[in-house]
Design a binder for these strands. Structure first.
Lengths: 256, 256
DNA sequence: GAGTGGTCTAGACCACAAA
DNA sequence: TTGTGGTCTAGACCACTCT
């Protein structure tokens, strides 16, 4: 180990740091298998439990993933898709492509989605605030899980006021060419502005399962509100996005 | 426990989920102390090690924090500061307030910063790309740790081309009224646009220490590039931001 | 079947906090 | 001094992968 006997840090931390440094300086490359737990225990003269704890720490840092029966591996970073505001360009969905697929294809990925729920529900507080209605008012929700390159990457729930989606394909599973935005325009809402608010946190247990997140992967909580030219909020989307597959980009003029 | 004997999930997971649900539905409130490890072990008839592992899972989810000698507590979420593009408003720094303090004060917080390094260094790749220079070209860097309400919240490193900061207060610890942006304008660079790129990840060990991050707290990796009216990149800032103290907001017109 | 990681137990000893 | 969480050990048994 790189540290002397006077090092007061716990064994597990020292071991984890040793391995982390080997990963950071390239001695261990993404995809490489680490020595087995037994080998690490023997090599560092510590118990198996200490080795396990050290590996746990690295998993929490998102540097290592385990595969039962195979070994521990230096994590390979999935190529993050870049999300810029250009993904909302009207020309895209007016030409019949849904935002999700248009953006993925533009970056050489494949995308798809699975509907989880299509229903009338009471508006949650955060949605009601943004739509300018009372909490609990019935609204229409589309809950879907989106996939990129076969991996789930986002749990996205879109909420609409009932009169807005009345008689539109937004109430159906398949929204037709151009997706929900195109249907909102068909219904007379010329779209104008988007507000995006982000927070970051760790996933809950169920979210980890639904998004197949490796340990040590945070999620981005996104609230997106879409406004039409009259300033009315016509859609609120709440999304939980796998943190390791996302990169956001914004460019704007410095305000006066 | 809320689950039956046929539940195949590991004990530690079931225990963690039980506690998580109690937190989510308000039976356990932020700041509340959990039962001691011994009590949980006795109540659920499992070994101490299982209880520890369950608590570990909750810590990884950012729901629980431990205090040695005191107990385990439901985590209190620090009030996240909201970061919108209005924080860059010219009127703010032209009136002599630094961005950091102006934004914090506007939201009822106190802010400060500590200089970690002020030096000439070779440009890292990510900086060089954005400044449009070759990797390794000498650049000026200001590394500082910013604090909000007494807690470190950000490791921020700003890079500048040498000619840009030549003879300015940007090379000094105290940049004077209005901060770095004001000095760039004094030097003839009228600022125009900002590009912000974010990723999210778990902190490394040293970052956890520097930002005093509780377990289960992700960080936001921000790259901010500032352009003057001629389109030249005059500053690149790389920041590592404590994920639990930040909320980002952007509002923009839908592009054509 | 052999190898490897995951779960679980029982128990010793240390570090920190509060009374 | 007592209570509480943190570190560490030794070992049993299970689940998954590969040959």
């Amino acid at each position: 180990m790189s540290t002397g006997p006077t090092d007061a840090r716990p064994l597990q931390v020292r071991l984890a740091d040793d391995i982390r440094i080997q990963i950071e300086n390239g001695q261990l490359k993404p995809g490489d298998r680490l020595p087995t737990l037994d080998e690490l225990a023997a090599a560092h003269m510590v118990s198996l439990a200490v080795v396990r704890k050290a590996i746990d720490l690295l998993k929490q840092q998102g540097l290592v993933v385990s595969q039962q029966g195979k070994g521990n591996f230096v994590r390979e970073r999935p190529s993050a898709r870049r999300h810029g505001i250009e993904r909302y360009a009207k020309s895209r969905w007016r030409s019949g492509k849904a935002i999700l697929t248009a953006e993925a294809e533009a970056q050489g990925h494949t995308a798809g989605q699975m509907m989880r729920e299509l229903a009338e529900v009471p508006a949650p507080k955060i949605v009601a605030e943004r739509l300018g209605i009372s909490e609990g008012t019935p609204v229409w929700v589309r809950r879907r899980t989106t996939h990129v390159d076969g991996r789930p990457n986002q749990l996205a729930d879109s909420y609409y006021e009932l009169p807005v989606v009345e008689g539109t394909l937004i109430r159906e599973e398949n929204t037709g060419p151009g997706g929900g935005y195109a249907r909102l325009e068909d219904a007379g809402h010329e779209l104008d502005e988007i507000s995006e608010e982000w927070r970051v946190r760790m996933p809950t247990g169920p979210e980890s399962v639904a998004l197949a997140l490796p340990a040590g992967t945070p999620v981005v909580d996104l609230t997106r509100t879409t406004y039409d030219v009259s300033g009315r909020a016509v859609e609120v989307m709440l999304a939980v996005i796998s943190g390791d597959m996302v990169q956001m980009a914004y460019r704007f003029k410095i305000p006066d």
